[in-house]
Write a protein that binds this DNA or RNA. Sequence first.
DNA 1: GATCGGCCTTGACCTGCATCAAACAAATTG
DNA 2: CAATTTGTTTGATGCAGGTCAAGGCCGATC
Lengths: 229, 229
Amino acid sequence: MILETRHSIHEILSRQPLFRGLEEAELRALAAQTREYRVHKHEILFNKGDTPQGIHVVVMGQIKLFLPSTQGWEKVIHMEEPGSTFGEAVVFLDKPYPVSAQAMQESIVLVISKAALSRAIDSSPLLCRKMLASLCVRLHELLTDIEACTSRTSLQRVTCFLSQQAPAGSRTYDVALGTSKQTLAAQLNLAPETLSRVLGQLSQAGLIEVHGRTITVLDAEKLRRYSST
Amino acid sequence: MILETRHSIHEILSRQPLFRGLEEAELRALAAQTREYRVHKHEILFNKGDTPQGIHVVVMGQIKLFLPSTQGWEKVIHMEEPGSTFGEAVVFLDKPYPVSAQAMQESIVLVISKAALSRAIDSSPLLCRKMLASLCVRLHELLTDIEACTSRTSLQRVTCFLSQQAPAGSRTYDVALGTSKQTLAAQLNLAPETLSRVLGQLSQAGLIEVHGRTITVLDAEKLRRYSST
DNA sequence: GATCGGCCTTGACCTGCATCAAACAAATTG
DNA sequence: CAATTTGTTTGATGCAGGTCAAGGCCGATC
């Protein structure tokens, strides 16, 4: 990882959802304890079990959080996009990272020291609330993830995933997987081959259309029913 | 559910880890907006999709949080024991319950209104921090849960689960499942029969001993190695 | 535009686990 | 203490999906 100059960290921080609306002084204190890293595609930010340095903010690129397992296998927990934060938990729990993180693209990540964030939270009820909300969102994401990847059959796993991406109350919609299908397979706990077959089956049934990394769901309702047959 | 008298809610609240150390006035305000419910074994507290009333605190008994699925199947997310809280997320997100809750024993549960808790958090930085910590613990629990139940083989799922229950650095230890083995199976995404067989296999290999609802791990290190063979 | 290296797909095979069924044990009830 | 229900074990069977292998597609590089 290459450490960047700090000229604009303050400004970048102020643009992140989590820190928007903070006092100037608070923001400045945070920025002083923040480092900016540029990471290359495929570079590992940290491994499961490492000692945490602080909270991470994705400014640009895409970071994969995953559980590695003996024998090269891995379960993808979440893909972090710009504006999202991860590693919040380490600020409050004195534990090693529970996941590994890897850049899937050329990325820029901020790391805010535990101590600074801890102080900021104490002095800013607004930040505290925002952190709470952010953690709750994370919890919900994990739950929907569990739901998708513990369904019985591979078909259910895929339809469950697609249904979860549905915007409220529209019959047809697009799902842009910002990742390779391999990665999606790892997220749904499927072999890539199986995912391919299931998508083929759903296409054949006229329920979806696959165009590269975009999946078009043609009938949300039918799709949901299909898996229970 | 039977609504209880409120004579001692204030006192009960003050004994819960989450609220210990709060000001008298704050506690009183919370207690005024808290209800105590007694629920029977097998009774449903709420279903996934219901509109949340508030945050839940388990005072006595055991509450199962689970994801129901079409066709009577279910994935157990977590068993809540006395002193633990759940449904925190609903205070900050305006969403329906993401899980269902069912009492596994005769239980006593407090429900604190969203509004009251929200006010309490604003006025008490201490409570805010405690909530953050509690949510982080929950996150970690979910992650270890995912880890256990997305391992490839049934054997790995079970050994992974047993390893996670290990106290730090002791060769041998007991795991007291406070539940039936059916429930554990649902937690690990296994058929009860499969769990039974795997436990049998591990016993035969001399790695564990099963006595009713207690599993004795004889050699933590060997157990971890065994699954990767 | 030709060559290379990821990705993705398709096919054939075979194992691991769910399912069904039945016997048994333990816990609950009258 | 018998009777009933609920939980656990064991066996036999079938199929879903993982694995291995080969071929096609597409974007990257020179």
